[in-house]
Design a protein around this nucleic acid. Structure first.
Lengths: 359, 359
DNA sequence: ACACGCTATTAAAACGATGTAATATGCTGC
DNA sequence: GCAGCATATTACATCGTTTTAATAGCGTGT
């Protein structure tokens, strides 16, 4: 190994060296059905020659001929966002032994880039597409290009039940439900909330999960203890500002459920500065379990949404769809939903007064 | 836009529609040098037809013929590591308008995958490779495969001055030098250090920068205030443990310089728990400026190493090398070094006693 | 009249693989 | 002695492009 040069070795060379025709070589190396008549000795001779010469089939020629690129397109909205990279990891793992290579395009959260990414992938004749949905906007109509080209497409992170596209989503409501259930179990009753911005699709179901538990447990949600992120997105400064607002309202609370981890970080920072200890005075719960949540000060209790698994599910769906398409079966979009899990760390504890009401 | 189907449109169709031969179409669309004799009217007719039909050249055919894949390989050691993704972002940006598409392979920090990634890229006939060096190990000999195949290769994050590979690195010593200079300027004299593990190449130069400044400023480094990360890598728990050890030694210190941000986070967590306030009692400085450093509690003063820029420089080098290779110039490996910048946030302040000795 | 250069255009040969349709060989049964 | 069949193998067209070498028309100077 190591000293094969630019594989100028073609199938013809292999044929020459092993004394058979290129057809035979091709059939042997792909063990095509028609190769069943070729005796073992010949097969071995061919394989031997191929290995000796360090033959690597030219993928361009192969793709040109067979019209299969052995390539999937992956569209992420921001490669520096751990949300995307964790999903990517799952995709990679699922694809690793499949012969498919993912090619990655990054929207960088810029609308203008979306169109170009789609074109790029179509140009490269990808056999399928996995798109990680931007939490803010999603140009579904752009993805329709793929649907039209009959390229199987799955969107991760956005519910699309009646679309021609497949989808993988997390069950947001189940996540917040579990979080509130846990706090309630610890004994918290005065609980504050920072809701997500209306612009994000995840906001509504996360809030819904909270309301559901509250309703089931007979817990009253105090409107004075609810604030909402305005504008497009959560951010550290916004989190700080909303936490301050909660403090200014001078309504006591022993726990705080935030829309996401970043907001939770901001809240903890703000509470600490205001002299409230976390978790001794106030418990804080986030959502997402971003990397770093476990290293925060204190380590954050939050809802883990199995991003890797979402990625691998997406890849599986695509593989299935491609397979279906190839055997001329009807391709029906698939929809999967993964259940998140509450990860308890050290930003939550029993409320100050009652030390440990049992769940 | 939107409803072009699987581009079964070939150059032949365009030729048919515009009433010329495929040769003419090809020449016009690539504005090849030989197209100079073709009158404007014909050119426009061809271009018009191409656009009307929604013609997209088949890249497989093109690559097969011209032996150019229009593709670069990028090898990262861990796609979920922000170090990699920031560099990636720089690479993308630099490549965005170049016609080259990066295809990404992820080692996942597993030695075994390296070989396979290299093979994958060679198979896809990439025209160049950008490898982001694993901080721990780097199978340079595996990359030699690329050198042998005359595929231009640049390594980001590892000094390789006399190699046949090109390289981009950060000037580690300059970074730590600046950090210590800053603390010294604030008035700190009793300064503790957490050194990086010997196994990491970055450890030595970062320590060297500290020693250099200390020597220049006449600052004595107290061996009792120096600890070193053992084993392979920095981690949160290790950081906590080493900080505890520093505290146990009962040698007073007003500032702490850590090997990297993760260790700094751990140190801050540990100090806080031990009742030392950051930065009022102890200032802490990290290295890397990982995302989240600005959101930590408190926001971390650290050394920013321009990862995006490193990425784009790498991409530029590759483009230059490919170009050189193409015009049959000799390809000499290039080596670039970027100077980091100290980012002052809120984990540093003047030492407790002397409130603000001027630099 | 014709060799020459110039413009405008194209036929045809690659590129490297795949797979269909065809061929060559040997064996069986009648 | 030959149709019929299984076995072993291959010639050749094909995929869609690029590019070389050739062609055709057309003025022009001798």
């Amino acid at each position: 190994m190591g000293l094969r040069k630019t594989s100028a070795v073609t199938i013809r060379d292999v044929a020459g060296k092993s004394g058979v025709s290129v057809t035979t070589v091709s059939m042997v190396l792909n063990d095509a059905p028609l190769a069943r008549h070729i005796p073992l000795t010949t097969r071995n001779r061919v394989k031997r020659a191929a290995k000796d010469l360090g033959y690597r089939p030219n993928l361009f020629a192969r793709s040109l001929r067979s019209n299969r690129s052995q390539t999937l397109g992956v569209v992420v909205f921001d490669i520096t966002d751990p949300y995307c990279t964790q999903i990517l990891r799952g995709i990679e793992d699922s694809l690793y032994h499949s012969g498919y290579l993912p090619i990655l395009t990054d929207i960088q959260n810029k609308r203008a880039r979306f169109q170009r990414c789609v074109e790029l992938l179509l140009e490269r004749r990808v056999e399928g597409v996995i798109a990680i949905a931007n939490p803010l906007y999603l140009e579904t109509h752009l993805l329709q290009d793929f649907a039209h080209s009959e390229v199987p497409t799955v969107v991760i992170g956005r519910q699309l039940s009646e679309s021609t596209l497949s989808s993988v989503v997390v069950d947001n409501a189940a996540g917040t439900f579990a979080a509130l259930e846990y706090l309630y179990g610890l004994g918290h009753r005065k609980i504050a909330f920072i809701r997500g911005p209306k612009a994000l699709v995840d906001s509504a179901p996360r809030w819904k999960g909270l309301c559901e538990f509250a309703w089931q447990a007979g817990l009253k949600i105090d409107p004075k203890l609810v604030v909402e992120i305005q504008g497009g997105n959560s951010s550290y400064p916004v989190g700080v500002q909303l936490t301050q607002e909660l403090l200014h309202r001078e309504r006591e609370f022993t726990a705080l459920v935030t829309f996401d981890d970043l907001t939770a970080f901001a809240a903890i920072g703000c509470l600490t500065k205001a002299g409230r200890r976390v978790p001794e005075d106030v418990s804080v719960v986030g959502f997402d379990d971003i990397p770093g949540a476990g290293f925060y000060n204190p380590p954050l209790t939050t809802v883990h949404q199995h991003l890797e698994m979402q990625g691998s599910i997406g890849a599986e769906i695509i593989r299935d769809l491609i397979h279906a398409r190839h055997s001329n079966e009807a391709i029906k979009p698939l929809h999967r939903r993964v259940v998140p899990r509450l990860v308890v760390r050290q930003s939550t504890a029993a409320p100050p007064g009652a030390a440990g009401i049992p769940a």
